[in-house]
Design a protein around this nucleic acid. Sequence first.
DNA 1: AAGACGGGGGA
DNA 2: TCCCCAGTCTT
Length: 346
Amino acid sequence: MADYSRLSRLPVPLLEWYRGNRRILPWREDPRPYRVWVSEIMLQQTRVEAVLPYYERFLRELPDIPALAAAPEEQLLKLWEGLGYYSRVRNLQKAARTVCEQYGGELPGDYEAVKALPGIGEYTAGAICSIAFGLPTPAVDGNVLRVVCRITGDETPVDSPALKRRCREELAPLYPEGAAGDFTQALMELGAMVCLPGGAPRCGECPAREFCAACASGDPERLPVKPPKKPRRIEQRRVWVVLSPAGVLLHRRPGRGLLAGLWELPGAPEGEGFPLGWETPAGAEPIGTARHIFSHVEWQMEGELWRLPEARELPEGWRWADAAALAGEVALPSAFQAFRGFLPKA
DNA sequence: AAGACGGGGGA
DNA sequence: TCCCCAGTCTT
């Protein structure tokens, strides 16, 4: 069924296409290993356009691996605030420390060594080693999976680990001498710009149209074959905006799990009272509802505003945050965006 | 093999 | 609404 021999015709026209159509991106202009590494971590499950504003700022504040290794956690989380998947930045720093201890502060140009670092899996190791070190190591992401399934006509479900392995094995021998980084990026660029998901592939401008099985079938969007989707859990929560002269009351989330270690507006499951056991003050007012959708869970929040005449002592894991703290040191995840309007403003 | 883990942009 | 994105880690 799947005809992987079609892939052998891809490298020449793909590279030609890439050189005339590639986007100018900061990590492409200066592909030093650290810069490529940071870009690849940020780009995990995240679109290029979303990453751009974060990338330059991150590199400016943490310009090299030793600086990353030494950064305080609050600076890391602030630099990542709103980007999501916060374990990425924790693992990034953990890996930076390992690189400082074991490799003198420079990323090793070796696939297995790179892949052994926390936060770096098959895809990211292949991307870093091909783009930054010129090694023929395929980087098979969602884009590449889609491109390969369509060209070969492979109907294996895209979430199958076997398919990913097959793609790596078939692509590795096709890597052109001296153009590993371009080939890796060209495959992804094609998926991002031409071989689009859903019903929008631009086969007319595709360098692979002459030998693509999906294009020839006349129904390219049939591939790749996607697994059935699963419903997400819904959680009802009450969320409090508690204001005092010292600022807004925040709670630090547990070190693991959803939004690990980030600050949040105090909340409780529907029906439970205020977490610190405080009495509801006179003048407490509802401030509307908000919904936030994560990939696997949905929060339905009812907001309540409390204005306290003076600040109170707080246990460990709680703090007051004024406008300056919110701007400079506290990372508040996007889930609370709807209530930002009630928070202290500079 | 299946879930957990964020958030946003486009159809 | 749903899809899905330059995925990885844990169970």
